[in-house]
């Protein structure tokens, strides 16, 4: 299943530029997957599911950015798309924290190194960026499918120390400025920084607590609080998965959050 040629392509796109590891990504063009890694068809086991859902959801193969989108890349995007600049963006599509680490509309400054992941971007802005690149945001199922991989195989939870490293990251204050993208070890699929750098937007972030349940999103959401949250779970001890669900469901699409970035995906 593992496509080594694609992995090599992903690896070749990583280069040391100006002392920082950055990823060269192509300008928008149909079918270009530079800097992306093909995640083979597989499955995703949701932490929360309704009774009529199966334990595992099939995830068709897809391309995923090998690293999150950087400040430099997002700067190029707002240069080309003035309506997404900090001073011009509609408050409907980004709250006042939008690009708040940047020194100015078109200036990154000391808190936003060029090769560090862009954060404080709203879901709308992340989606617009992806569309401008001919890509899209990954779905929860896709993101979780890629992020479940360890370093040696497709199931990180079976690797010693994997879960505890995720928890340790969650319980450390966010460093400022953030480290550069690509500083994490590539996982089994060759993707970096899915854990341990920033949280990441997914296309369907606000369905995190419903997963197809049709009887009312808010009711299910409320049931996830306190002890009631543990009912009907795949694995109540999977704390990192809980936290990702908790984080996503705290969001609204206009929120620009200090440790929340994104990466793009595309279908083959």
């Amino acid at each position: 299943m593992r496509l080594s040629s694609c992995l090599r392509l992903g690896a070749a796109a990583l280069a040391w530029i100006g002392g920082a590891l950055v990823v060269a990504r192509a300008t928008p063009a149909a079918g270009v997957t530079t800097g992306m890694t093909l995640i083979p068809t597989g499955t995703y086991a949701p932490l929360v599911r309704s009774q009529d859902e199966t334990a595992e959801v099939a995830v068709p193969s897809f391309w995923l950015d090998a690293v999150p989108v950087t400040n430099a890349e997002f700067l190029a995007f707002v240069q080309a798309n003035p309506k997404w600049r900090r001073s011009a963006v509609s408050p409907l599509f980004a709250d006042r924290g939008y690009l708040g680490d940047w020194a100015g509309d078109l200036e990154l400054g000391p808190l936003a190194p060029p090769a560090a992941p862009v954060v404080r971007v709203s879901w709308f802005a992340a989606r617009a960026y992806a569309q401008s690149m001919g890509k899209r945001l990954p779905t929860t199922a896709e993101w979780e499918r890629a992020a479940a991989a360890g370093f040696a195989g497709p199931a990180g939870s079976t690797e010693p120390g994997f879960q505890s490293a995720l928890l340790a990251w969650v319980t450390r204050p966010t460093p400022q400025p953030l480290p550069n993208v690509g500083s994490g070890r590539p996982n089994f699929f060759g993707v970096r920084d899915l854990h341990g750098l920033v949280w990441e937007w997914v296309a369907d972030f606000n369905t995190a607590m419903v997963t197809g349940e049709s009887r009312g999103d808010t009711g299910l959401e409320r049931n996830l609080f306190c002890g009631a949250g543990a009912a009907g779970l795949r694995d109540p001890s999977d704390f990192p998965a809980f936290m990702r669900i908790g984080f996503r469901s705290s969001l609204r699409a206009s929120y620009a959050v200090p440790n929340l970035g994104f990466r793009c995906a595309r279908s083959p």
């Binding site: 709250d95 409320r222 705290s250 609204r252 620009a256 959050v257 200090p258």
Partner: peptide
Amino acid sequence: PGGGAASSFTAPGH
């Protein structure tokens, strides 16, 4: 419901 929990769920910086 929730003792306020559902109404006070707050993302970082909000």
